[in-house]
Design a protein around this nucleic acid. Structure first.
Lengths: 156, 156
DNA sequence: GGCATAAAGTTTCAAATGAAACTATTTAAT
DNA sequence: ATTAAATAGTTTCATTTGAAACTTTATGCC
């Protein structure tokens, strides 16, 4: 009767559950592209973003992919060396360059997208359309809240 | 009209969203214990588990905390050196030992639990009890499915 | 009992990561 | 115009991580 809330039951603790779930998912997914296509998770994110957005600078990519600039820089470097991404220096600001997929990059993307979609489809196979909508809403709200809390915590 | 599903919109891709959310959450939470208590995320998980389960071997902990044995070994080593965990060798199997929290370990746990609970409460503040139940169910199902998919993928 | 195989942890080594320092360029202020 | 401050991206260095090899102890088989 006394120590009801003394401890903390990890399997019910949301942060733990999120970490565990996202770990499962990322590791599974990475098996789909790491060996076969020699891509890291960051590179895959960048290729996916350039695929849907077209041209972007490194910092814009970082923003969208939630990657810090060090990681973007390294990943872009590897992608460029592998001939999957090309840079075009801007005249109006030579500090940064605009990045885009090469033909080879588009090729890789086209081959991975179905695998990734297929994995997501399988993960969601047991959920109805309404349930997926609910999940979508929950994730959005959690994401916004987590970002806000982080900002609050950082600011003091 | 042609390339509707060619690309993949990252901000709607579930694996990406999970990774991003869990990253936010873990980093925020880790600020609560890493500096103040000098604990890594793995150590915190182990302390929490030992706190609610009492005595366990390293492999049992790994099972519960979803940590591989290398990480458990290292984290336990640090915890022991910090006087937070103690080992008791089993007579019937001297390969492993049973681990438990020292008084100091229980102390640390008791000081962190309120902080962790508070963070979780804030994260969930905008959700109703029903919504939390729905979320709970969704996470359980996703977790089981992701684990099953991983096993399937590993087995070939 | 004696030998092969498995299991629990630990150690080692190479690769991934992140914080901080650095370079090059641009913008702002005087 | 000249200097100071800010921005984009890169490099460096120390730490973290994970896979594979290793050590010790236990189990199964003949």
């Amino acid at each position: 009767m006394s120590d009801v809330k003394k401890a903390l039951y990890l399997p019910r603790f949301l942060p733990y559950r999120l970490t565990k779930l996202s770990g499962f998912v990322s590791r599974s997914l990475s098996r789909l592209y790491s060996e076969k296509f020699d891509l890291t998770i960051q590179e895959w994110g960048i290729v996916a973003i350039l695929g849907s957005e077209g041209e972007m600078t490194a910092s814009q990519i970082g923003e969208l992919a939630s990657l810090d600039k060090v990681n973007v820089s390294r990943a872009v470097d590897r992608l460029e060396k592998a001939g999957r991404v090309k840079r075009k220096t801007l005249l109006r600001d030579r500090r940064s360059s605009v990045l885009s997929l090469t033909e080879e990059g588009q090729n890789v993307l086209a081959r991975i997208v179905p695998l990734a979609q297929d994995y997501e489809d399988k993960l969601l196979a047991d959920f109805s359309a309404e349930e997926i909508e609910v999940m979508d809403d929950i994730l959005n709200r959690l994401d916004r809240k987590a970002a806000r809390l982080r900002d609050i915590m950082l600011s003091r």
